[in-house]
Design a protein around this nucleic acid. Sequence first.
DNA 1: CAACAAATTGCGGGTTTACGCAAGACGGCG
DNA 2: CGCCGTCTTGCGTAAACCCGCAATTTGTTG
Lengths: 240, 240
Amino acid sequence: MKVLIVEDDPLHRSYLHEAVNAALPECDTVIEAENGTVGEKLARDHKSAHIVMDLQMANRNGIEAARTIWKERPETRILFWSNYSDEAYVRGVSRIVPDGAAYGYVLKSASDERLKLALRSIFIESQCVIDREVRGLQQKSLGQTNGFTDSEYEILVDIALGLTDRAIAKRRGLSLRSVQNRLQQLYDKLDVYQSAGDDHEDGRFNLRARAVTVAFLRKLLNYSALERAEAELQEWLDGK
Amino acid sequence: MKVLIVEDDPLHRSYLHEAVNAALPECDTVIEAENGTVGEKLARDHKSAHIVMDLQMANRNGIEAARTIWKERPETRILFWSNYSDEAYVRGVSRIVPDGAAYGYVLKSASDERLKLALRSIFIESQCVIDREVRGLQQKSLGQTNGFTDSEYEILVDIALGLTDRAIAKRRGLSLRSVQNRLQQLYDKLDVYQSAGDDHEDGRFNLRARAVTVAFLRKLLNYSALERAEAELQEWLDGK
DNA sequence: CAACAAATTGCGGGTTTACGCAAGACGGCG
DNA sequence: CGCCGTCTTGCGTAAACCCGCAATTTGTTG
């Protein structure tokens, strides 16, 4: 059995290495990659079916790497080991996991025990292991209660990218007015009004920009999500 | 001699601990804090004049902690040890360092040697040590060449927060038109036009929102900067 | 002090946003 | 099939935004 570790940080990498050795005596080879790009390549070369990966990496982040890896071999088992449980990450991950694939999401703050348990559950028992905290977000995010629908999230991303209403309409195949409707819906949910027109016509916000900021502060968006969205946008622009 | 370590990540913390022991035999006590809040408290209690600190911490980030520490004791020597050299961080740090204070900025990717050297230079020799890469940003940022003026940066932050032109004018004591002038200046420098009105009146951007995104992608802004700016904004709003 | 560049402000107008109102369109469900 | 809620669309308006033009103010330099 082979395990591939994809992780930026040398200290974390060697910690993972030890954890894998300790948790999986049946594992005879451990390979290391220091960023997403190398990770993809090694996964391909070694046809390794067992991967532990960080999400936030400078060169190519975990979500992108996982996507291409899963595209090539959907049965690959991946354990995401991340510092953060931003909704943006959680949403990003659940968007790309193939049907029926075994995967995991464990926070770096988890104990050694938890990590080792997760390693065994996923790689040996093929079970999904999602950190409690992450799980909470996931439900809130996918279920409609208090969370954001896909269409709301979509518009959020579009205005975050800086598209005009018209451009969004064109991109998503909607009328101008529909786009604006969804925007209002978004503004509602993000509570952009609250602090806004409070009393005087004094300290009012620009709703569009404010929405993006609020989403950022709430971790609904983060750098990595923006980066991916920007790449998709460029693709779309090129494709006409 | 006492050294205080302020760092989120347990692995990095113990690595730092060892590095301090190795580089500074004259250091007899090492104290550890796992976030900015605790860091401030320990710095106060121990009157420790030598601090190694991470910038990105969940609870209270390094810049905020450093600011209050330096406010209380400006002669404190602080070595920032960070993963990133985002312009937002560099700018944030140089904004708060007291006149003549000895401080350092070393990237986590630096070698053990570099870290140890920096520790000795700052804590023993009272010399500033700024990582080469960071230094580059600093010059570009402070010198006007290709970089952003303070006023440009200020407006950038203001629109990122989601303020309207009018609100910005009020906050900064400017006329509406001046605010808009600065905005145009900002749009220019950020190259927001380039990808914008390219050819058809087709895929146009909302300049205001686009500017923020571009700034984010260029690391001119980051989460921590936004967070700080938002706090300042709230303060201002309360203060009327 | 004169001279000149940079920043501030006002005016005016073309666009884009935000959003109420109301008429379809689509999708279950009894 | 008819009822009803959600989504989409069009029309219209007030406000906000982007920005060219031009008069001032401010700051700097010889």
